[in-house]
Design a binder for these strands. Structure first.
Lengths: 165, 165
DNA sequence: CGCGCTTGCTTGGGAGCCAAAGCAATGGTT
DNA sequence: AACCATTGCTTTGGCTCCCAAGCAAGCGCG
């Protein structure tokens, strides 16, 4: 047994209140919950996707490409859509390229830009890993459907108020 | 202006539905929201805490220590409470130690164990950074109080069903 | 007693993210 | 046409997290 039975977030919140920090205690608890939940969920995703030789970050890139008309996108667009730093995109594409799931091709009009294009093998891997995610973590995130929907709304509200869209 | 006005999560969900993946689309959207929200929130926290020479990870360690009776804890306990890998704790304590916010002292009974003890300076930094967080991100996470509370509950439920406690 | 499993920490390596700097190509301005 | 700010990508370096391996100390069992 390694289960302390205690909710660490509730524990932290009690500390906050005990120190007289009532008010911020709610936000603190929400923040800590968020971090922890993300950690758990991401762990699951990585697990599911690993057998396909992917990390979740690279899975996102691959899937994004598979959704585009021509299967290609400038790296900058990838960064925009996925909300990650250009350097991260470079790294992900490097790895995907050396795995043969993507190739870099020059942009036909803008010689500064580079397109990442998904390969046939890349498409196969994208399909398979998506299927695995759809059957696993995406099918059940540990909440009832209406709860998941409500969570989604609250997170959207949080993101909205942070200017995410 | 660089605001596309579009919610990228809603966009992804549309793609899912368009591909006939209805059902998992909800979980997918919830997961992606969660990741994005965490990214946003963590970014805020790092920002607030940086002026004190801390990262959020190290802030957590420091605060945890400040809450204990004697201001010290074996590294293993820190890992348990914060739910992070032992190697991460070693790294965080290394850094805190070289910043003079913490010292390593031998465990009086178990010679394998090492205690991290917060220093006076560490306490000051912990206080100040906590105050900053309490006035900033913790006071307002971008949701009304009842919404934040509801979010907290949903995340707790998610964590619970993942066996987090 | 002593062998062996467990526990506690550290080290080394991989991967991700970000910030800042460098370089090339663009494109608007004068 | 010449200039210079902007854009697109890469590189380097810092930080976090994890895994796996290594080593020391504790503990339990025959």
């Amino acid at each position: 047994m390694k289960e302390p039975g205690l909710d660490l977030v509730a524990e932290a919140r009690r500390q906050w209140v005990a120190h007289g920090w009532t008010g911020p205690d709610r936000g603190m608890a929400a923040v800590v919950s968020l971090m922890r939940a993300q950690q758990i969920v991401l762990g699951r995703l990585e697990e599911v996707v690993r057998p396909y030789g992917l990390s979740y970050a690279r899975y996102e890139v691959l899937t994004l490409l598979s959704f585009t008309r021509r299967g290609e996108l400038p790296l900058s667009k990838i960064g925009d859509r996925l909300q990650v730093h250009p350097a991260s995109v470079t790294g992900a594409v490097d790895k995907l390229e050396q795995q043969g799931l993507v190739v870099r091709v020059p942009h036909p009009e803008d010689r500064r830009a580079v397109l990442a294009r998904i390969t046939d093998q890349g498409r196969r891997v994208a399909e398979q890993s998506t299927a695995a995610l759809n059957e696993g973590p995406f099918a059940d995130i540990g909440l009832a459907a209406d709860q998941a929907e409500r969570l989604l709304e609250l997170l959207a509200e949080l993101r909205r108020s942070a200017g995410d869209f």
